[in-house]
Design a protein around this nucleic acid. Structure first.
Lengths: 404, 404
DNA sequence: CCACTTATGTTCAATAATTTACATTATTGA
DNA sequence: TCAATAATGTAAATTATTGAACATAAGTGG
């Protein structure tokens, strides 16, 4: 039986997952790389890559890499071949976006948020707004590949649920995926915002630094880390919870968790705001604190410096335990720059063994309000283009058909 | 051109790596499992497995698994198809062994050790003794697959070198692999003993507990952890170094590292021995301490209990940071049983958030002097049978030819 | 003992992938 | 401009893998 070009293309496409995964992960960005990375023959790679190119999933960039002979052409996933939806729940607002595969924002919006509303209503509004964004993205960017939700609370990533009491009261153990997956018809991911910010820093600013720690110092304090290139979540997704490690002392302050002397109660935005208020400078959260620091209020600078030392104290423990090669400090308080950072550096160098600090870099994150959104996009992309799942993506795409 | 049975067998063997890896890792222990796990067709699996069986690399066990119909026969790597060499440098002696693929000891020996001798001479003696063991193992167990060396000091696993100052003075940055690899003609691995004990506990006693922490409380204090099923080493192999985390207090004792208030200086075997000596009970190391505890010396029991609380304090920090689902406490001091463990439990439950301790088990390791040796064996096996490297093993085996 | 169920092996035609050999292309440097 | 170099494409022959169909094996529960 003869086969026409289209069905030959489709059958090549069905086997092209490995190729697509390699291109998407940037493990192989040229045809020659693909040959060695995949172990397949040139004939096969040519054929499968041809199918991916024809389907519009992969494209040739204008870049080439010198090779000594004919330069090799750089390949990339076609950013406009599909899109993602992401949302980040903040203190008072929810930021939402449709993103292409770069990932870059196609379209975004903001809606108000109140904890009092409860998860069902909030998720309903999120679904509605994401639906609107999807509508607009679909015309230019084809299929929806995945949806990601960032939450300011511990999340059991495997189960997609908020775990433990948190600022999102009423959300504990609520089945978020069941509520939303149907509405949007794509794989759904829920993750803690700090882990997503960590992933963003790793993928976007420090690719290749496979053992790094991200500290978010804002109104609360949390951390995330990349272990051997993977977000490390621990048994229940609660890894990196450094805000409630205690240091005892005579004046140990009461924490909102009910214990005394937690890092948060000493160094988080709310704790500094509490101390500033007592000194006669009204402040409520990390933003207020940074405002006072930026207007050169000595008391605020002093307290931020002290907070840096407290964070440094706990960070030194983390360094001893996980031995990262990079620490990125982000969150609102990081806008205090060296005032915060110097205390962190001081304590780490003071308390850690030289071996652990020998090659350790400690840097500030660029202030970026949307890093959790981008992190969510990377999370989706990593999973959807992973070798194990890329087949599903191609099937989904094959059905939707190629885009012009 | 016709092909005889032998060459057909050999070509199947060359492609049988994936099958072998699945059987070795116990990811698939039956033919049916292999079909689904490999994704290959039954014809191919039958053929490749046949080659592995013919080569003597894999064998059928007498066990079967019920299935509702014909039971499926359990497959396993043939433990006697090849062997490993391992060595563990302790305080005063070096334990060495040839092991089969179970891993189980085929033959073992002990030689004296003195730091003063320096790495070159010590490694020379180790090579000679391992050579002797290899000679004996070779007759019954075919090819040597790998050699592992366990050291009581931080090791940069990737580079196979001791890093930083340690009890092994003179070993820092010494190129161990260059010194030994040639002499033995097999892949060579060097790793820290605590990480190997951790790996042993994971593989041997708690398979499936993919996020676990092992604490070694002996003359020194260290820890290792399994993150998502892998030994977590950090950037320089120094992860888990909890012995030199400091807790400040008025009476902070001086540590052998030169800082004050380290966990080691408060709770390690040498620190308890120091305190006991001051109280009039001569003791030098963890063994002496346990001796006094076992003879019901109240002072020793009190100090061990106190050490448990100190270890619990640092362990609670570790729990907050990495969120394990299991803590295994081993090392000489663990022979103190509940006396040590109760303090650890107490502090962890007191200082960690309920979320992190909700499903956390804290248990004692079985006392086992050879756990680092077994851990080294597992380390070699994991690597040699890994999908990426199993091809090399088969090549090596193909050249050596099948055993009867 | 028998029917039922699932595991396992085998044959053979169809399909997929590789190897080989040759051809073409896009650069660099003489 | 021309050789040198390595990337890339392709046809044909060879080899590997699959799927389907059939056969047999080894348990379970009547």
């Amino acid at each position: 039986m003869l086969k026409d070009a289209t069905s030959a293309d489709l059958s090549s496409l069905a086997n092209a997952g490995e190729i697509l995964s390699l291109v998407a992960s940037r493990a192989a960005t040229s045809r020659s790389d693909l040959l060695t990375a995949s172990g397949l023959s040139r004939v096969t790679v040519t054929q499968r890559l041809g199918a991916l190119l024809a389907a519009g999933l992969v494209r040739e960039t204008s870049r080439t890499l010198p090779s000594g002979g004919r330069p090799t052409r750089v390949l990339a996933v076609n950013e406009t071949a599909a899109f993602l939806l992401v949302a980040n729940i903040g203190e008072t607002h929810i930021h939402l976006a449709a993103m292409d595969l770069t990932p870059a924002v196609i379209r975004q919006s903001t809606i108000p948020f109140s904890v009092a509303e409860g998860p069902a209503a909030t998720l309903g509004r999120i679904a509605a707004e994401l639906g609107r964004l999807a509508q607009e993205a679909r015309s230019s960017h084809g299929v929806l590949l995945g949806v990601g939700l960032s939450l300011p609370t511990p999340v059991d990533f495997k189960r997609g649920r908020v775990v433990g009491p948190s600022v999102l009261s009423g959300w504990d153990e609520y089945d978020i995926i069941a509520r939303l997956q149907g509405a949007l018809g794509a794989p759904f991911y829920v993750e803690n915002d700090v882990n997503l910010m960590t992933l963003y820093e790793y993928r976007h600013n420090f690719p290749g630094v496979d053992d790094m720690l991200f500290i978010k110092a804002g109104t609360g304090i949390g951390s995330g880390f990349i272990a051997s290139g993977q977000v490390f979540r621990g048994a229940q997704g609660a890894a990196g919870d450094i805000g409630h490690i205690q240091f005892l002392s005579d004046d140990a302050p009461l924490c909102r968790c009910g214990k005394f002397g937690c890092v948060e109660a000493r160094a988080a935005g709310w704790a500094i705001a509490r101390d500033l208020s007592r000194l006669g400078f009204p402040a409520e959260n990390a933003r207020d604190v940074i405002g006072l620091v930026e207007s050169q209020t000595p008391e605020a600078i002093m307290l931020l410096r002290k907070a840096g030392r407290t964070i440094g104290e706990v960070a030194s423990d983390v360094v001893s335990i996980i031995n990262p090669s990079l620490i990125v400090v982000g969150g609102t308080l990081a806008r205090g720059g060296e005032i915060l950072l110097s205390g962190i550096r001081e304590l780490i160098y003071q308390r850690c063994l030289p071996l652990a600090t020998r090659d350790l870099r400690i840097v500030l994150a660029e202030p970026d309000a949307d890093s959790a959104l981008f992190g969510a996009a990377h999370l989706i992309l990593d999973d959807v283009f992973s070798p194990a799942k890329v087949g599903g993506l191609i099937a989904r795409f094959g059905i939707a058909g190629p885009r012009s």
